[in-house]
């Protein structure tokens, strides 16, 4: 059995120890918070990439994206070609009083025109001012950070994997055509190279499965 009163002493010790430690208060207006990577502060529009496909506006769960556009015809690129029609963006607005920051619009955009920015200080005294028009959304783009580096054991991004595979294939083809005499040796070399990388990639995969 514990000594009578040891609980009381323990309580005093806890509060005293907490007092000697640094407080956990975030001094927000004086000190900017250190936001984690991929913080969802505001949505920026890179309108040069936008093709007015309307996917974002349609996928938005609370319909807070407003898009207006018109079609323009562009003259044929080569003489004798066909005229093309092109969508021109007239209005792109996000109503942040409705937005629930789900990020579906950013996920769904096939042309990388929407991005998360960590900026969050855009409170307004009038709720109508929370509708950010395209110029304001474009301004947020300057605050979009570079994507954070991948985790050490992360899977290779699909784009890079595809590019690497294409480059290897090209390399192998080049080697095959150049060293026609030593064809078998060259193929074995490429094959061993491939297996080696496969083995290097493998430790990451089961580990991630284990975590899940």
């Amino acid at each position: 059995m514990a000594v009578p009163g040891s609980g009381l002493a323990k309580g005093l010790a806890v509060t005293l120890r907490t007092m000697t430690r640094r407080s956990v208060t975030a001094h927000y207006p004086d000190v900017r918070p250190e936001l984690p990577a991929r913080s969802r502060g505001v949505i920026g529009l890179f309108e040069e990439n936008c093709t007015v496909c309307m996917l974002c506006a349609r996928e938005c769960p609370d319909w807070c994206i407003y898009i207006d556009s018109h079609k323009e015809t562009v003259p044929p690129a080569a003489p004798g070609g066909r005229e093309r029609s092109r969508n021109v963006l007239d209005r792109f607005a996000i109503d942040f009083s409705l937005c629930m920051y789900c990020g579906i619009c950013i996920e769904v955009c096939p042309f990388d025109a929407l991005f998360w920015s960590p900026e969050f200080e855009y409170a307004e005294t009038d709720i109508r001012d929370l509708v950010h028009e395209r110029d304001r959304l474009r301004e947020w783009m300057w605050t979009v950070p570079a994507p954070p580096p991948l985790d050490p054991a992360a899977e290779e991004p699909k784009e890079i994997a595809a590019a690497r595979k294409a480059a290897e294939k090209q390399l192998a083809a080049g080697a095959r055509s150049r060293e026609a005499g030593q064809q078998e040796a060259g193929q074995q070399e490429a094959g061993r190279h491939g297996t080696g990388q496969h083995e290097a990639g493998q430790p990451g995969t089961p580990q991630r499965d284990g975590d899940a």
Binding site: T18, M19, S23
Partner: peptide, 13 residues
């Protein structure tokens, strides 16, 4: 101040 720091806060600033 003491109460704040014992609770991991900073109190009036």
């Amino acid at each position: 101040k003491v109460m704040a720091h014992m609770q991991g806060r900073v109190g009036p600033m």
